[in-house]
């Protein structure tokens, strides 16, 4: 009896949290099909916003900026973060502590402070535009890659790398055939985290972007006073659904269970 009750309460609590997490998302999805431009009143179903989305150059430009930025920053962070993590794991105690301390700074510092500090530094030597934002994103993304990969390096079986070297493999060949495959799980989740953080960032982009360059977030922020274009709801719904489907396939496709 008591067991049943706690079972019921568990499910009920889970339901409440799910409603809390997904209510705003549901609102956006519903609005993307609302034929009214007004925010709250439902005036009938339409796919109009989805159609008009693709002819809106401003939104398309911002979308491309956002995606290129996320891909490039996650890619650069992945390579640099992997090398850094391998290096960190081979360091002695003091080097390790110092490097991990540096790695924690962007994670611990308030986004607004990171953004402002980077902006104040950038204006000394480069214009604020795509490149400054990219550098900023790489800066806050590398720690996520390091934190995802480092535990995998610490658990990996290093002796097979040594065995390959013993059998005559070069360091590079040994790295690609023995070490990299063992780190795939960490690299995938590191890249995914970095990509997500970059897509979702507003504050740091806002301070380092300069005029004329916009990501989706900064564009929407600039439009709040004028009113959000319903095409944005449509775009966000599309992105959300795409990622949802992608994650579903990656995580729950049978026969592709990661060891993690």
């Amino acid at each position: 009896m008591a067991r049943k009750l706690t079972g019921f309460l568990s499910r009920f609590y889970l339901l409440l949290i799910m409603i809390f997490l997904y209510a705003p998302i549901l609102v956006m999805v519903v609005l993307s099909f609302n034929s009214s431009r007004s925010r709250v009143v439902w005036e009938g179903f339409t796919l109009n916003w989805y159609v008009r989305l693709f002819s809106n150059h401003q939104i398309m430009d911002a979308l491309i900026n956002t995606l290129v930025l996320a891909l490039a920053s996650a890619g650069i962070s992945l390579v640099m973060g992997l090398l850094a993590a391998l290096g960190i794991s081979a360091m002695r105690r003091r080097g390790y502590t110092i490097t991990m301390g540096l790695t924690n700074i962007p994670l611990l510092n308030a986004d607004i402070v990171t953004g402002i500090a980077l902006m104040l530094w950038f204006i000394h030597f480069m214009p604020l535009s795509f490149h400054s934002v990219l550098i900023a994103h790489v800066t806050f993304n590398i720690p996520y890659v390091i934190l995802a990969v480092l535990p995998k390096i610490q658990q990996m079986n290093i002796s097979i790398y040594e065995a390959s070297r013993d059998l005559g493999a070069s360091a590079v060949y040994g790295f690609f055939t023995m070490i990299l495959p063992q780190l795939t799980g960490g690299l995938v989740s590191g890249f995914f985290m970095a990509f997500t953080m970059s897509m979702d960032d507003f504050v740091i982009t806002y301070f380092t972007k300069g005029p004329g360059f916009n990501t989706l977030s900064t564009m929407i922020y600039g439009e709040i006073r004028k009113g959000i274009k319903p095409e944005m709801y449509a775009l966000s719904t599309l992105i959300f659904v795409t990622v949802f489907a992608l994650l579903l396939v990656v995580n729950f496709l049978p026969g592709r269970q990661e060891e993690e």
Binding site: Y22, M28, I220, Y221, I239, L247
Partner: peptide, 17 residues
């Protein structure tokens, strides 16, 4: 998953809610 609905839009949705 919710992070993939744009940050600003999520907040605007809460505003509407």
């Amino acid at each position: 998953l919710p992070m993939w609905m744009n940050f600003i839009l999520r907040l605007l949705a809460w505003q509407m809610l």
